[in-house]
Write a protein that binds this DNA or RNA. Structure first.
Lengths: 164, 164
DNA sequence: TCCTTATAGATGCAGGTGCATCTATAATCG
DNA sequence: CGATTATAGATGCACCTGCATCTATAAGGA
């Protein structure tokens, strides 16, 4: 998944057909997006692991649950908010349930549905993770970008995330 | 791994301690980095899969091998160039070997070492993948960013990849 | 030389992920 | 109402990844 940085010019020379060629600038942006995300995510996950905390996916779920009224959501609602795949979330919830961070309850208005409810332990874990996570974000991004650069980066990335 | 976009302000209110807090701008940049990378990578991998091509990790290895003199590298050289983990690369090479895209040979100058050599099939595959990959990069990034924006984005991401 | 330490690469195991499919319930439409 | 279709969520399987460890070879130091 990594992709080398100085590789883009070479990549562009490889193609047989000339159709749909991305520019050198675009290709370089793509390669660097992959590389930066991999490096920063890896560094942040290392910080979490060093503090004996679960991986980031757990945090996403805990955060979504902790910020809604009642601390409960349907699985498909978590899915929409986090972009986790359905089957994937289902098993993540198994693990979080087993760890005592959430519990599942039947959803009486629709026999197919479930509630996922954050526990007190889950709320405590969300806070513990955030303390480490926040410091990691500051270390691996905040120390390298000023606020103006961060805003600029966020704006450019937002363009990429738009449906086309 | 996803992380919600509109979540950053809430995240910032969660912390108990005030130490090492990232700014809202930095936190938002981080969340959008994760989201954009996930969406674009997912879209590109879908395009490859739709064309019955192997995942991007294979391409990285084929590209590194195809661009060096003699089409051969030591595993640890591929490792450095691609950021693939050692154990991970070892098994990726198993699969690529089995698929006939590379072959391994003993490295006579150091009994511990191996050569990894790209085959003709491997070179052909590299070219086939690039045709699809290039079109996917153009579709998912090039159609959304002009060259100036792409350069700006690449520069900001390069800052993040620097060792601190 | 022998002993210790470092390096290249492979592998067993546990856990994570995608894909397809399954079950159960609900909604729709004749 | 009954038959079809859609939706919520779970699960079996294959593959992939991280981690620790293992083997083999090389290098360095007493």
């Amino acid at each position: 998944m990594s992709v080398n940085i100085d590789v883009t010019a070479f990549m562009l020379r490889c193609s047989e057909t000339e159709a749909s060629q991305p520019s050198l600038s675009v290709t370089r942006a793509w390669v660097r997006l992959m590389r930066a995300q991999q490096l920063v995510l890896g560094a942040i996950e290392q910080d979490l692991k060093a503090a004996d905390l679960p991986p980031l996916g757990w945090y996403d779920v805990l955060l979504e649950l902790s910020r809604v009224e009642g601390g409960r959501l349907r699985p498909y609602e978590i899915e929409e908010r986090t972009l986790l795949a359905q089957h994937n979330l289902s098993r993540l919830l198994d693990r979080m349930d087993k760890a005592g961070l959430v519990q599942r309850e039947v959803f009486s208005e629709d026999g197919r549905g479930r509630w996922v409810i954050i526990t007190e332990d889950g709320r405590a874990m969300q806070a513990r993770i955030w303390n480490v996570y926040a410091a990691a974000i500051q270390r691996h991004l905040g120390n390298k970008l000023n606020n103006g650069q961060a805003d600029q980066l966020a704006d450019l990335l937002a363009v990429l995330s738009q449906k086309s």
